[in-house]
Nucleic acid binder design. Structure first.
Lengths: 203, 203, 203, 203
DNA sequence: AATGAATGAGTCTTCATTCAT
DNA sequence: GATGAATGAAGACTCATTCAT
């Protein structure tokens, strides 16, 4: 209601947007708060009004970014009842989101990684959240007798890592041109392994 | 023979060893050259005598570390003629090396990642080298009619990423207790996908 | 009006004043920004807030100093219509300014000289400005038929150098006690050469 | 006689030559002993064997350089009995030496100037030596009744400064193309002032 | 809310000098 | 005599953070 709060919130978002841009371009350590302030058309003090410290700003950004990512993926999964199809949907949506939000991808998969021990916990949360999502599908499929016994956690993390590395490669080398083009190969590997789908899989 | 050169080389190695320790504990940005100097029982100037800059030191370290890793994995592969068994060997050896060289693992898979754009190239080299190794196995196996057609590059990177993420998880959470315990699940996923080996595979 | 800007400007001037003192006492290279900060009762960061680098600070100082000097000399010349009398006035005023601003003299005539190639351009500007001033008098006097043909540029620079060296000697040896006492001899040399004024000096 | 001493002396000279080159290109502070060592095809230790410190090296260089300059000028003066002609000879020879030894000129007239208080004494020596040379001519001419009374010291220093500034201008701007071309104008100014030689110049 | 001047600790880097070999 | 590895003090510069206005 109060106009003032609205403005404040808008300002805050402005700062977060600038932070996404700058942090994902320069990395955590090489980013100066001054730069964030400039990009958000605010002042240094302005940034500090909304976030108590650089660390907190980065953390908030990670929160927002991973929240958005998870939300989108979860939404895609929610619409898919079949557990394995849900896994496919998650995979496809993840590639879609990363592919259309390069900055977010770079932030989460590159810049946040070596940024300092303070951020490992947050990153772990993200890893765990995704792993849990995937593990959920797997467990459900297993319960339905569709899958054999396996170490769900390991498989879930490996799955997640496979996707990430494809995204990282895209970020760093530009290949494949369209990230989503990696979907079929990824899907095939994760579902059927290197041997590919049995016999006459319709591709 | 020349005593002096030997000492110099030893000193250089001493510095690299210290650098591995400090960089992988604190990360690139949070590491002070002073700290590296102290750990190598040298002086700051001593470090700078052997390496022209912090960046160069880190780069040299990445070189050495990835060189060692690759060497070990390639050695394991060299002893295995069958292309698919070779892939397994690579996987197992990678887990073995990382599992017994935590610092090296942390350096390559965590600290080097967000350390700055200057290091992306070097990291890409490593990614590419591994992907090429794996892609070599896959292509050979395909040529032998053992595998169906697939996007080798994507699959190779995904494979590599799957392994890395399992290692990262181990680094950050300590699970699984022994990294090599992740081998069976990883191998199964990468070879047969989530559906696992066909029928009564002897596990 | 805006109080803040006023303070900022005052601070800036404070730093410049301190810089004049320290640079002209210790020279460019032997001056630490810390020292300038201390003398200006600011912090190192404060200095850097107003000047982007040591070099820029020194340059700004040279600008200010040579600006002041030129202004005073030009003012003295402006009041003197006769071209040759104007030359005398310039000479006398230069000695006056240097004589009462030892730091400025030392800065411009000693410390700035070997301070580095980056400052040569600025120094040249000063030389050129003075030479132009003097050359102006000479040319005007020539046009009025008071002087014979001569290489104005060389003469102007020589004139300027003659004055400077007398000032430098005063700076380094303390002689003559009062710089302005050098005026008659200098004036005589520059106007009439070593032979001095003809018999009953026309003047 | 002893070969060893000869070599040592040659080495020493090698270092001095390198020092002249490097110091006059980079200035005192921006010159690293390493650079001098490299240019003299010696090692850092080698330089320190012949000169106890950077300061001592620079001082020795100043000594050698001003010695050479003085020697040449004194030689030119020795051959000229008439006091005023001797002054002319000194002037001409100074321009000749500087004109054909740019590095020496730059060293003495630019780089040594703001190099630090430690070198002021040495520079003063040079100034005093030249002033004394010139003052000698003047005094002798005065004794012969050729010149009127004047403050010899001031005139001598001014004379010296006039020459120097012309040389400095040449060093910094490249004008006049050939330094010796400045001779006539300089000579005229110093002998007859801005009014130039009386009527039909005796020359 | 916002600004931007100010602080000062922290870092990389340079380099004169020393000295074992 | 000469080398070059090693030292450590010194210094420019950065930047997260604070705070008066």
């Amino acid at each position: 209601m109060p106009r003032v709060q609205e403005r404040s919130r808008a300002r805050r978002q402005q700062v977060l947007d600038a932070a996404l841009q700058v942090f994902s371009e320069r990395g955590y350590s090489d980013t100066a708060i001054d730069e964030v302030a400039r990009v958000s058309t605010t002042s240094k003090g302005g940034v500090y009004f909304h976030f108590p410290s650089k660390q907190a700003l980065f953390l908030a950004l990670l929160d927002e970014a991973s929240g958005q990512l998870l939300e989108r993926v979860e939404a895609a999964m929610r619409e898919t009842p079949d557990p394995l199809a849900r896994g496919e949907a998650a995979l496809r949506e993840a590639l879609r989101v990363f592919g259309s939000h390069r900055l977010l991808a770079r932030l989460l998969l590159v810049e946040a990684v070596g940024a300092g021990r303070e951020f490992n916990a947050k990153l772990n949360e993200l890893h765990a959240a995704f792993a849990t999502l995937i593990a959920g599908c797997l467990d459900e499929a297993k319960a339905a007798g569709l899958l054999p016994e396996c170490d769900t956690q390991i498989v879930a993390h490996a799955w997640y890592g496979a996707v990430n590395q494809v995204v990282v490669r895209w970020l760093l080398t530009g290949e494949p041109r369209r990230l989503e083009d990696a979907y079929p190969a990824l899907r095939s590997l994760l579902f059927y392994g290197v041997f590919g789908p049995p016999r006459q899989e319709p591709r």
